[in-house]
């Protein structure tokens, strides 16, 4: 690795947000294309502003790349290498909880999500992870479902409790 490369700042990840923002702005303009002027006005103004800012930023990045002050690396986007695996599993568990909640209901989803996350993140021994998750799930049930009566999808646990009470 040359000294110049070592000193260059990775900006690949910095581009994700402006590019997404610009894409959304373009989609927004497309979505209001046939609408009355009052419905278009602020959106188109904002899209113009956003695209202008993003263009200036891209120019800054391109100039940086040309002068080798910047590089296209992703830098620290994913955090420390040693915990990447456990953190990505945690994120996947979050998505899984979203998919499962309509079937499992609040309590079982919360319990499973907490228990599996604790285990994935390295809580040992297993029984402790499961125990804390169970207490968390039940406290959540008591507060959110039993006391406040939120309309969460009911799962087997909620239906069982309803039948028992």
């Amino acid at each position: 690795m040359t000294e110049k490369q070592a000193a260059s700042k990775p900006v690949g990840a910095d581009l994700i947000l402006p590019v997404c923002a610009a894409l959304y702005a373009l989609y927004y303009v497309w979505s209001v294309w046939d609408f009355p002027a009052e419905a278009q006005f602020s959106g188109i103004m904002l899209a113009g502003l956003l695209l202008l800012l993003v263009t200036i930023y891209l120019i800054r990045v391109l100039r940086g790349l040309a002068s080798a002050r910047y590089s296209m690396g992703f830098g620290d986007l994913f955090g420390p290498r040693e915990s990447r695996r456990s953190r990505s599993v945690f994120f996947c568990l979050m998505l899984a909880a979203l998919v499962l909640v309509p079937w499992l209901g609040f309590t079982l989803t919360t319990f499973s999500f907490l228990a599996s996350s604790f285990i994935a993140l390295g809580v040992r021994p297993f029984w402790r992870a499961v125990q804390i998750a169970a207490v968390g799930g039940l406290v959540g049930w008591f507060f959110f479902i039993f006391l406040l009566g939120t309309h969460f999808p009911k799962g087997p646990f909620e239906l069982l409790v309803e039948a028992l009470i």
Binding site: T110, L121, G136
Partner: peptide, 10 residues
Amino acid sequence: APFIVAFTLV
């Protein structure tokens, strides 16, 4: 972190 995610999603 798991507690934050579980309860803020509620």
